[in-house]
Design a protein around this nucleic acid. Structure first.
Lengths: 272, 272
DNA sequence: CGACTAGTTGAGGCCAGTCAATGTTGGTGG
DNA sequence: CCACCAACATTGACTGGCCTCAACTAGTCG
């Protein structure tokens, strides 16, 4: 509240119109970013190692080829680039192909909150369908590549393909279920429990992507983590120190090693 | 809204055979509620005054008749009855036709939280699509009537009807946006602001349904309201008293009159 | 009637926020 | 190369908002 101006500066990175143009000039502009043109060899969804995590799960080769046609292009974002803003016209979902993004909710009076932390294989922008405008802002936490999925095309294909339709519905529903878990965290858990749950959630998601489940790099600052967990950055910092002192984790800046998953899990599951 | 002229003009709706098969008497009993049998005269969605709030928004008469076929039945719940439980197999969404429900999230260690307060015209159960099981519990806050909407039928019709498909997607997305607002409330707002936002939200929703926007009856206890807002019941009670002392509202038990919407709005929008 | 639930109000304690000092890291320009 | 600055992080002292515990009232129901 008092630091709202500082927060803005830290979170609201100015748009970088100079996003890299590796290929020919883009045909589509979106949110000040440059959309890379379709490049068959590298862009095929059927060749994407992440497809089981997103909309193409369980599709046969023929359907996968169709999915490839739905991708209007890919975008490269650099750390801090904004993918879309609150209030901006909704047109597409975005599949994160590599890297990670945060989504931010904003209040009228300028307060903001990190509403989500999204990594490779996840799809964002779903909040925009209902009002034809995005209701949150998406910002890259590191160099990130996303696939642009025009929602009209998704709807069209989902009318033809039962399995794809179901995948789309599951995607939306899972976001609802995820948010319900965050609400539970924000509404009922004490600080140390929130952080334990957060770390274990990250751990699981890294593992699901083939990375180490016990050592990873945080892509968010203490302030962003705090914002996501409904805490202040000092509290997050103190908790990391305490967890380390108690032998639960080893923390060096943004590199986290989980040393005692069992105890963390206990912290995350009960309230004492 | 405009189509409210053509009432139960009976589109010659044949009793759908699958409906009867789907809900044999043995399956009708669920937690003490009784599923009403398909009764053409009373159940038609085309005659439902709430349809603009739910999936049938903007559909023509022909499509509305189709929607009628999707309703597998109606259920009457009495106050306290459970509509579905966490972990129960997902099969249907439920449209609240009259009355109201709360949804509850549960943690492993038995803690719970009111995750949503839903009134007539709203559709619940969307959290279950993603995992084939409901992840929260729905409980009637008063005597309540709901329409049963087997999700397979919704998917089938949405493959045929573009506008309906879009309504379904908007429905899911709006739930995502709603939850994002609750997360913002839980993560960043002080207690008095949470309650102010809560009251104004209720006010808007009652107004949208044609009820008074400044006087209404709370269907939840102080404890349930507190749970929804991430507060304890004593805090909620104290806040009501304070709001009343300051002339913002008049509270008598569960009857609330908003006296000074402007000040409430100010409370709800800024943090001082 | 007594038992129970819902609600109000007060006193005191604790968890996390606030304020502030300091350390650390990484990028930039002289 | 170092000086410098800004962003990020850590830690301590203190404050305060909400929780906890508890007493009391009112309404409901068997």
């Amino acid at each position: 509240m008092t630091a709202s101006t500082d927060r803005e500066d830290a979170m609201d990175v100015p748009p970088t119109p100079s996003a890299r143009r590796l290929f020919r000039p883009a045909e589509i502009q979106a949110g000040g970013q440059v959309l890379l043109e379709l490049s068959r060899n590298r862009m095929l969804c059927s060749g994407c190692t992440l497809r089981d995590l997103c909309l193409s799960e369980g599709l046969d080769a023929e359907a996968l080829a169709q999915v490839d046609h739905m991708i209007a292009g890919r975008m490269r974002l650099r750390k801090g680039d904004t993918l879309f803003r609150a209030g901006e016209r909704f047109a597409s979902l975005y599949a994160i192909r590599s890297g990670s993004c945060k989504t931010i909710s904003l209040t009228e009076d300028g307060q903001d909150q990190v509403a989500g932390y999204h990594m490779a294989g996840e799809i964002i922008g779903t909040d925009g369908i209902g009002s034809d405008r995005y209701v949150c802002q998406a910002v890259a936490l590191e160099d990130t590549e996303v696939c642009v999925l025009p929602f009209e095309r998704l709807e069209a294909f989902s009318r033809q393909h039962l399995r794809f339709q179901h995948n789309l519905h599951r995607l939306l529903s899972r976001e609802i279920a995820r948010q319900a878990r965050v609400m539970l965290l924000l509404g009922t858990m004490l600080a140390e429990r929130r952080l334990a749950v957060f770390l274990l959630d990250l751990s699981d998601r890294y593992q699901a992507r083939g990375y180490s489940s016990c050592e990873f790099v945080l892509r968010m600052t203490r302030e962003e983590i705090g914002s996501y967990l409904g805490l202040k950055l000092e509290t997050v910092s103190r908790l990391f120190s305490r967890f380390q002192r108690d032998g639960l984790v080893q923390v060096e800046g943004r590199v986290v090693k989980l040393l005692d998953r069992a105890s963390l899990k206990r912290l995350g599951e009960s309230s004492d």
